[in-house]
């Protein structure tokens, strides 16, 4: 799942404990069983709960959990493609030896993380600025929102092709414009630093408007009395933003960032279409690397090791962040 689009909402829906809290109060789930009509009711409801959840869990289990386990097995195997499927030849640790010896892997990991941190930071700053502007806008706010929904709703592959055309080395409008400015013809996608930058620009263009919309909604929802108090104190707009607005948005933003970073481990569509991971391996994300090792080099075992390592990193980060999700949300509730 490549996209960035569901992050902020997902982020905010995180706190498992909060929603659960009030029904836990009345829940007899953990109480020792004793007979009584109320308790029978509880048990019946619990059973219904599992019945209602079962179809979803079966589907999710079969299609996600089982493959995750299977991938783990493959990552310890020598595998090749046979006429009727895959052929597991023997078990081995070599795949991980190869993985940890591979500079490409560390580069892809570093690239994925760095790329994400930078784009998320820029998107957040620009998105917040845009939201502040939109909030003060007296006319045309609705139209502007509609316009900003378009990049978000665009298929990533499509926007990647569009940017590929803009950056084209012989007739791209960006190439032409840069040539006009610098006097020499740039190879935007042909050299590492320009290629990475160009990819970030494409990403920022697509995601910033969405961040702006989310932050704007946060701004509108903030309690007005705090601002009025600030205005009475004579704080200017800038000060108000730093001292009043930002702290209140912090919880939402923090959780959104964490989610966005987790999702970015799947970064694939944009580099695959725009640069193919190149030049060299300059824009090769973990997912692009995994895909290439698997289906281009047909190196199934090591490919499964890349895939499994990526999955473990995400799971680990997720569990690690779970604490801060709770902490952030807790603070939000207090304030």
């Amino acid at each position: 799942m490549s996209s960035t689009e569901k992050a902020p909402t997902a982020a905010a829906t995180v706190p498992p404990q909060r929603g659960g809290a009030h029904d836990k109060g009345r829940g007899g789930a953990r109480r020792p069983a004793f007979s009584g009509p109320r308790d029978a009711m509880e048990r019946r409801m619990a059973r219904i709960g599992w019945l209602f959840t079962a179809p979803s869990l079966v589907v999710i289990g079969l299609i996600t959990i089982f493959p995750i386990m299977y991938s783990l097995v493959l990552s310890f195997s020598r595998v090749r493609i046979g006429y009727d499927g895959f052929v597991v030849e023997s078990m081995t640790f070599d795949n991980y030896v190869a993985l940890f010896a591979s500079q490409d892997f560390y580069y892809a990991l570093g690239f994925t993380v760095l790329y994400t941190v930078i784009t998320v930071a820029v998107e957040l700053v620009l998105g917040t600025l845009a939201a502040l502007v939109m909030e003060r806008l007296t006319t045309g706010r609705g139209w502007m929102m509609a316009l900003m929904l378009i990049p978000w709703s665009m298929i990533t592959v499509v926007s990647a092709q569009l940017w590929g055309y803009i950056y084209n080395s012989s007739f791209g409008v960006a190439t032409w414009a840069l040539e006009g400015i610098t006097g020499s013809t740039p190879l935007i996608l042909g050299e590492p630093v320009p290629a990475i930058t160009a990819m970030m620009v494409a990403d920022i263009w697509k995601t910033t408007p969405f961040v702006a919309i989310i932050v704007l909604a946060g701004l509108v929802m903030l309690p007005q009395d705090v601002y009025e108090a600030a205005e009475v104190d004579g704080a200017n707009a800038w000060k108000t933003f730093w001292q009043v607005t930002l702290p209140q948005l912090r919880a939402t933003i923090a959780v959104a960032i964490l989610f966005r970073i987790l999702q970015a481990f799947g970064l694939f569509d944009l580099p695959f279409v725009l640069t193919g991971g190149g030049p060299g391996t300059a824009t090769q994300s973990l997912a692009v690397m995994g895909y290439k090792v698997l289906f281009q080099d047909l190196n199934i075992g090591p490919g499964a090791a890349v895939a499994t390592a990526t999955g473990l990193l995400v799971t680990g980060a997720c569990l690690l962040f779970l604490r801060s999700f709770k902490a952030q949300v807790g603070r939000e509730e207090v304030s």
């Binding site: 799942m1 490549s2 997902a10 995180v14 498992p16 999710i60 299609i63 996600t64 959990i65 089982f66 493959p67 995750i68 299977y70 991938s71 493959l74 499927g85 895959f86 989610f259 987790l262 999702q263 481990f265 799947g266 694939f268 973990l286 997912a287 995994g290 895909y291 698997l294 199934i300 490919g303 499964a304 890349v306 895939a307 499994t308 990526t310 999955g311 995400v314 799971t315 997720c318 569990l319």
Partner: peptide, 19 residues
């Protein structure tokens, strides 16, 4: 559920392909 919703597709690609 939370973890699965951000789990990268690349991590299950091959087993799913095989299944």
């Amino acid at each position: 559920l939370l973890i699965i919703s951000v789990y990268p597709a690349i991590a299950v690609l091959v087993p799913l392909y095989l299944m």
